[in-house]
Each structure stands twice: as structure tokens, then as C-alpha cells.
Design a protein around this nucleic acid. Sequence first.
RNA 1: GCCACCUUAGCUCAACGGCAGAGCAAACGCUUCGUAAGCGUUAGGUUUUGGGUUCAAAUCCCAAAGGUGGCUCCA
Length: 602
Amino acid sequence: MPDVSYKDSQLYRVRHSAAHIMAEAMLERFPKAKIAIGPPIEDGFYYDFELPRPATDEDMQWVENRMKEIIRGNYAFSVREVSADEARAVFADQPYKLELINDLADGRVDENGEQTAVPAEKITLYTQDTFTDLCRGPHVASTKEINPNAINITYKMPAGAYWRGDENRQQLTRIYGTAFETPAELQDYLHRLEEAKRRDHRVVGEKLGLFTFSPLVGKGLPLWKPKGAILRDTLERWLRDVQIENGYEPVVTPHIGNLNLYRTSGHYPYYSDSQYDPIVVDDEEFLLKPMNCPHHIQIYKSEMRSYRDLPVRYAEFGTVYRYEQSGELHGLTRVRGFTVDDAHLFVTPEQLLEEFVTAVRLIQYVFNTLGLTDFRARVGVRDPQSDKYVGDDSLWQNATDAIIQACQYLELDHTVEEGEAAFYGPKLDFIFRDVLKRNWQLGTVQVDYNLPARFELEYVAEDNTRQRPVMIHRAPFGSLERFIGILIEHFDGKFPVWLMPVQVVMIPITDKHVEYANQVAARLRAQGLRVEVDAGKSRMGAKIAQHREIHIPYLLIVGDKDIAANAVSVRLRSDEDLGAMPVSEFETMIERVVAEKSLELK
RNA sequence: GCCACCUUAGCUCAACGGCAGAGCAAACGCUUCGUAAGCGUUAGGUUUUGGGUUCAAAUCCCAAAGGUGGCUCCA
């Protein structure tokens, strides 16, 4: 998000001013357009319009050219303060502006649509050339502070956006633009955008043969190809081992459950917008499970529990199905069926803090091992206005306090955001950004007093009384699908060796070296390494070119000299040529790299 | 779900009312080669699907499906 220094910067004023200039040019192109709001954003600005017809590429090119002309006109941005009534007169034929003026006068929302508490005493208008906008500023003093060759509004397509972000209100056309102080900075930005698109997990996943989608199977339902399945399975086995070391016990549960289970949990109806319709079997109704917790709870309830048994930690890679609006589906990061590396911890109130902290540390260990550092922590609490949560206020307060306390204990930088809780409790989420700067929630730890109450969970305490356990829901990856999507982009397909679906490719120089290549491959495979032999008839240079495209960590070239020395010539993914080394030496090196889960190649 | 755009060979794309093409990948043949792509041949298509306009549609129109960018949602 834009920070304070950005909001004070010249760049911010340039972009804010460019948004006004775009609106001026748009009104020339579409005289009947109604204007809404046009703030600067992280990488540029936008302006929302109600247009009489869809904007075309030609329109956008025309507007961009016209913007440059306006900028070259060296118009001053002048400001004046007016009363609400004067402002209403200025914008008499602009209904969105009138609504904003009314809200400003009442102190509800500012001109960028952000909440404010204070009624505006004065309304400010900024004018450049022929265009006047309701605006608090700041702006550049004159359009000559804007470089006409450092603006662009055609790099991004026009998009739909609801007025005031409310899907029940008018849908407007949002035109995105960006502006920089110099043309070189603009070019650099556009170049970085292109690079980001190349890094997109959907592009890299296709290139590396990791996964695919089939309309016949269904949208939002990823199909893992062998190489993707190896990557996924490697992650799963690793985490399973780590969890067992940390006192988790594996459980396995089915993909559907009786509707009554979800009535008790509250998923039905509190989660019903995200669920598929019930499946009717004989006279009973079943749901595809949207979460694993109710099933795990039934395992907890299958036995009498003593305080001596707690904490109980049940872990499952559980596949869940959620209805997502079709427009929201996105590669692997937003799908309709996905596998959660789920665990549910049943703890005594006294154990809660320690277990929560330990769960967060396990997540930190997972992220650190993979070198993931670019994330933020968010404490999601209830939206006090909403009725989509179950449970008493006091239980929510206990849970929220526990999470805040744990964050302080861990000295974890975090934000607290309302409306980001689960329906049964508050949570600590780890949020990553993809290459296109979209935010995705991965790991999560949640404190839950509500489901134990709804299911009447108990344990027998030291004093022989029946007590209620607290639940912790936690998932380090969040979902395997989303996590791998982010990993693909983070590593740009150059995964650490231990995760790489193919770790080594043998490249025999001619056919007569294939047998030796097969021998070395067999020897390496016996050590658990994933090795392929490229016995194709391409020349060595072509084989190298092809395999470096898909980021094979080690290319082992073998020819007469290598055979004579019982060696392999090692070329790294980084294009470093290590030259010939004895097979045993290579073996030692790669085994160490794999065992250490190293991010390096040697 | 909403707005806009897109859909041509396995992949990336061209043809933009008048004979459906290229590169890569594949198969086959030649080449046997020391660190970023050797040569040739062949095969591969109801141009996403269904309607319509037209002498003629990949191309224009309508609808559906899928995808992309946003918005909304993500309990």
C-alpha cells in the first residue's frame, strides 16, 4: 500500500494530476460521461466513469494523445474553496459528484471514497485548463511539472468497477493509467510488468508441465501433471515429517459429510455462500466438505479425553471444495477444489498461548526453509457491523486477546483488520503477493472457542470436572495449490534442488555415450535423485538450451573424456560450468544440497 | 456473479470478407557432434461450440462455453 512518504511525494502529485487530465480528455471524447473518483494508487492512478458506450483501444489512444497535448499546454492547477451549495452548482449534472459532496458535507466519506469522521467545513475544487474536479489535492502547480512522455493509459485495459465498491450499485468503467517523472522510469516500469507476466505461475506452470486445466473436468479444478505432483508430494512429505516431529498425529477423513454435521458446526448456514448444494443420498443430505474441522472434531469426540491427553493435534492434507464466483478463479491461487495442510489442536486454556506460539513458529520455520520472506502478518478480527459470525462476544474477545498476546510475545509485526476473521473465530494470516501484486493468504493460525462449544467438546480436568477445550486451526501452506502457485512465482520456476521435479539431466554427447549416461543415472536414482537421460538426437548445444529453459539444476554432459575418468561434466542452472568431476564427487555435492534443502546449487 | 476484452495445430502466434500459414514440439530419415537450439521429410485443423448475415465467414452479427484484466466476494 502507498506509504506516507509516497503520499507526500512529487510522484503522487504527478499521478493525481494526471488522473484529472485524463478525466478532462475523457470528457472531450465522451461529453456525456459522468465522472466518479480518480485517486492515485500504488503504481499509477485510475479514474472511474459512467460511459455511454464501451471504451475502445482507439478511444484510449486518442485520450492518451490528448492528455499529452493538455500537459504541453502548461496549465496551472488552481484551487478554490467553496461551500457545499456552490459545489453542488458546479457539479449539477454530475450525480456521482453530488453524492460525494453530500457525503463530504455530512462527514461520511472523502472524495477518494475513504471513510472520514469529520464533516468537511470547506470543499475544495481544483481546476486545470477546462476541467474542474472536486478534490482535496495535492496537485502539481502546473501541468509543465508532468512529463508528457512519462504517462501511459493504454498499458492496462479498461475494467469494470462498482460505484463505491458496492456490487449492488452502478458498474462504472475504470481507466487505469500510470505516470512517472521521467520516460526512462515509465519504460522501466512497463518492462518490469512484462517480466512479471513471464513469471506468472500459469505461464511457468505450463512451461514446466506442472499442471493443467480441462473445461471438461471443470473450471477451477486443477489437474496435477506428473512433474507438478512430484513437487507437491515432496512438499507434503516434508511437512508431514516435520509435523510428526512436532507431536502431530495424522488422521484421514472423507470428502463429504452429513448436512447435520455442518448445521452443528454453523457452516450451514454461515458458510453456505461458499458451499455447493447438498447431495441427496436416499433420504439424507450431504455436503462436499468446505472445511476439515467438523470431521476432526468428530474424531476428538470419539473418545473420552483427559487433561493428560491434551494437547491433541490432528493433521490431514484434506481436500475441500468451495464455490467461488467464476470471475474470481485464477490459476492455482483461487480454485474450487484444494488441499489444506490442515491441523486442529485441542488444548486446555492454559496451553493455548504456548500452542499458538509453537504453531506460528512452525509456520515461520516452513517459510524460512523455502526462503520466503516477502509476506506480511495480519490479525483478522470480526467486523462488528456484520452478522456472519457465530458465538458470544466474550468468546471472541478471549480468542482475539490470545492472538494479539501471542503476536506480542513473538514480536511479530502485524496489522489488525476488521472483517477478516473466520466465521468461528479470529485468525492470524500470512499474506503474500503474486507477481502482479495481488495479495493472497497462505498460512493461517486461528483460535476458536466457538466450535468446541457448538459441538460440546469436553475433557476431564485434574479436579474431575468436565472442561471445554479450545481449538487452534492452523495451516502453514494454507492450500497446496495456492502455495505452489506462489512458490512458482517466487522462484520463477527455479525451485530449490530438493523440490525440483527433475534434478539432473544427463546429456550424452553422442549415441555411444548413452550407455554410460544410463549407468550414471541409475547410480544417482539409487540415491533417491530424480534423473533423466536425454538420449534424443539433438546436438548437445540444443539439449542444453532446452533444459536450461526449464531450469534443470544440473546438466551432466558425458563424452569420451568423462567415461575415461569415470566423471561427469557439470553445468549448473546458473550457467556456471564446474567442469569434469568424478561421479562420486558430484553425488556427494548434490546429496548435501538436497539434504540441506539448500537454496544454492553447490 | 458484474463490466470489458480474448479463443486459429500440443505450445506461441500469423492470416482481418475471397485457396488456413509459420516457429517450437512430435514422428521418420540424414548427421555422431564438448557447453544457449545441425539438415531434410512427414503428420498435425469442422479456425471453441451452436445459430445468423453474405455469392463467399477464421474474419461481420447473436447466443453459449472456456480464458484474461478488473470489480465484488474469499466466513
